[in-house]
């Protein structure tokens, strides 16, 4: 019940309650029941958040974009019936035209089909890696920052050591330990790339989380909760995390795009995703030598990447606002 210590707002949430029949929100009901004290507590943080989110245009737009992207990743056939692997070298690097909206890439493949089909691998790599580092980094950072002392010293120095390992070195080791062969299924390759990027990528999240936790744990409401005898776990999850999440969300939403591009670097080095897997990153890195001659090779996959990052940045913004107890 973090709202108990947050100041009342000018537009108090209770005023909004009557506008919305409770029955429409299945998820909120479920959560209340799960909470077991629905009668005593009129609102939960998550319930409030969800209600806020549904009215936030930022959230609605970003959610719509993400739904489209997910559909693209899941069923690319909905968007194009062109075969992304039917390539004719004679079409190499032809600019956009009526027959190929996005033009052709170096191998003479249809860029539109390849961009649509590339969504799956790119979004999987970006989202899974980001989720992974956000969770691992947040846990490490929160524990280190909250406990301080020896625990902090141990975890922070461990973070330092992981930070020191060059990304390339770590990725080569991970990907060389589990080499891909001709018949390795695509999901395995994607999993390995996620692991290679994630295993060293969580350190900055850990640091960011630790820094805000150090600041937040001094706050009155945390001290108050502790004084009231709340358990560590409860304090961390209920009071510290919601107030310390902002920097991690900001970082994660941007780094998602960086991971998609980094995946390309790995592919470029021959250790990341490989044909026949299609990804935006591979397309972007292939465009590298032809920026002057064929900018469309960079433009289209780059634009899709931008829109994806935009959607996640907006989503992150909206979610953070919704969960911010200070807004209650």
């Amino acid at each position: 019940m973090s709202s108990s210590v947050a100041p009342d707002q000018l537009a108090p949430p209770p005023a909004r309650v009557p506008e919305r029949p409770a029955g429409r929100n299945g998820r909120r009901r479920g959560r209340r029941r799960g909470g077991g004290h629905a009668a005593a507590v009129p609102r939960s943080l998550a319930g409030d958040a969800w209600r806020d989110l549904r009215r936030n245009p930022l959230f609605l737009i970003s959610a719509a974009i993400i739904v489209v992207l997910v559909a693209m990743a899941a069923v690319p056939g909905l968007f194009t019936d062109a075969d992304p692997r039917a390539c004719d070298l004679a079409n190499s690097r032809l600019p956009p035209s009526g027959s190929a909206w996005f033009g052709y890439d170096l191998q003479g493949c249809d860029m539109y089909a390849r961009t649509i089909h590339g969504a799956r691998a790119s979004i999987l790599v970006g989202v899974l890696t980001t989720l992974g580092i956000a969770v691992v980094g947040s846990v490490v950072g929160m524990v280190a920052g909250y406990h301080g002392g020896r625990v902090d010293a141990l975890l922070s120095r461990l973070t330092d050591m992981f930070f020191a390992v060059p990304m390339l070195l770590g990725a080569i080791i991970v990907l060389a330990t589990f080499p891909s062969r001709v018949d390795t299924p695509a999901w395995q390759t994607i999993g390995k790339v996620v692991l290679a990027l994630g295993v060293l990528g969580w350190t900055t999240v850990a640091r960011l989380m630790r820094s805000t936790v150090i600041q937040v744990k001094q706050a009155d409401y945390v001290q108050a909760a502790r004084g009231l005898g709340a358990g560590t776990r409860r304090i961390l999850l209920r009071h510290v995390l919601p107030n310390a999440l902002a920097p991690v969300v900001v970082y994660s939403t941007i780094i998602l795009g960086v991971f998609v591009v980094l995946e390309a670097t790995l592919s470029f080095l021959g250790i990341g995703l490989q044909a026949p897997v299609i990804s935006w990153g591979i397309a972007i890195s292939e465009a590298r030598s032809y920026i002057r001659q064929s900018p469309h090779m960079l433009l289209f996959p780059g634009a899709f990447l931008s829109v994806t990052v935009l959607a996640f940045i907006m989503l992150g913004d909206a979610v953070r606002d919704a969960f911010d107890p200070r807004l209650r």
Partner: peptide, 29 residues
Amino acid sequence: DSDHKAWVEAVCNQIDATLPVDCVPTPFV
């Protein structure tokens, strides 16, 4: 580690387009 990816993919595409086989470009680091 050298500039081979593009032509290897092109060669495999051509072989696959002509013959009923499956040529897979396979990089080593």
